[in-house]
């Protein structure tokens, strides 16, 4: 099976008032795999996700997503690559407050022509995803984004990450703002939809309780070595 993420000898270092470096010797995620990364804050979690999403560039090493080595691409090509291939869900503030839920879901398509081309009827597809994620239709089309509960907002964010079928879904603590019962429900819905779309799911969380629902779980500390210091 082709690897969705293939990282080898990756190094990143950042120097400012403090210095920070991250090394990822080897990380492979198979296509369609659902991987859970357990990481406390400060373990280089955000940096690793930024690297995978192509927002920050490594100083050395290979970072291959679906056969494309990201460090080889220009900054704008990486932005385009992210738009086309990756759906991102954050812990909170996932949505533009001034756009409706439906507009938020459809927004990535504006930056990703190929994803857009895969969606014949945008509105119908958005509603199909949200109803699969357990959101009722009027909520998506008529309610204001700020009127939604946190749980509802996270589902809208999931629909936005999934629309147009990107190959990789990156979820950064997507459940931390939810209460315990909705956490499991959310992860299950997200997994089902990622599976249905044939996408790889990479979720990072500090909460180990959800780990055994995934195909595989790793401790971030075993994957990446972060070092901090004063410059």
């Amino acid at each position: 099976m082709v690897a969705s993420i293939d990282i080898k000898g990756l190094r990143f270092s950042w120097r400012g008032r403090t210095s920070f470096s991250l090394a990822v010797p080897d990380l492979k995620v198979a296509a369609g795999e659902k991987l859970f990364l357990l990481g406390e804050s400060g373990t280089g979690k955000s940096t690793l996700l930024s690297l995978i999403c192509g927002i920050t560039t490594p100083s050395e090493g290979r970072l291959v997503l679906d056969g494309t080595n990201l460090p080889d691409l220009s900054a704008s090509a990486r932005d385009r690559f992210r738009a086309e291939h990756i759906g991102v869900i954050f812990q909170m503030f996932n949505l533009l407050p001034y756009a409706s839920p439906l507009e938020n879901i459809l927004l990535p398509l504006a930056f990703a022509p190929n994803r857009k081309a895969r969606v014949a009827n945008q509105r119908a597809e958005a509603l199909r995803l949200t109803s699969a994620l357990g959101l009722n239709e009027t909520l998506v089309t008529s309610a204001g984004t700020t009127e939604l509960s946190i749980g509802q907002q996270q589902r809208v964010a999931a629909a936005r990450a999934l629309i147009g079928g990107p190959k990789l879904i990156v979820a950064d603590e997507p459940t931390s703002a939810l209460d315990a019962t909705s956490q499991a429900a959310f992860v299950d819905l997200l997994m089902t939809q990622a599976e249905a779309a044939g996408a790889t799911l990479l979720m990072v969380s500090h909460d180990a309780r959800l780990a055994n629902r995934f195909d595989r779980h790793l401790d971030l500390a075993d994957v990446a070595q972060a070092t901090r210091g004063m410059a």
């Binding site: 927002i55 900054a75 704008s76 385009r80 992210r82 503030f93 949505l95 930056f111 990703a112």
Partner: peptide, 16 residues
């Protein structure tokens, strides 16, 4: 800034 980071995450370039 939050809004801009979000736009970046879904594929917007800094130029956007």
């Amino acid at each position: 800034r939050r809004e801009m980071a979000l736009l970046r995450a879904i594929g917007a370039r800094p130029r956007t």
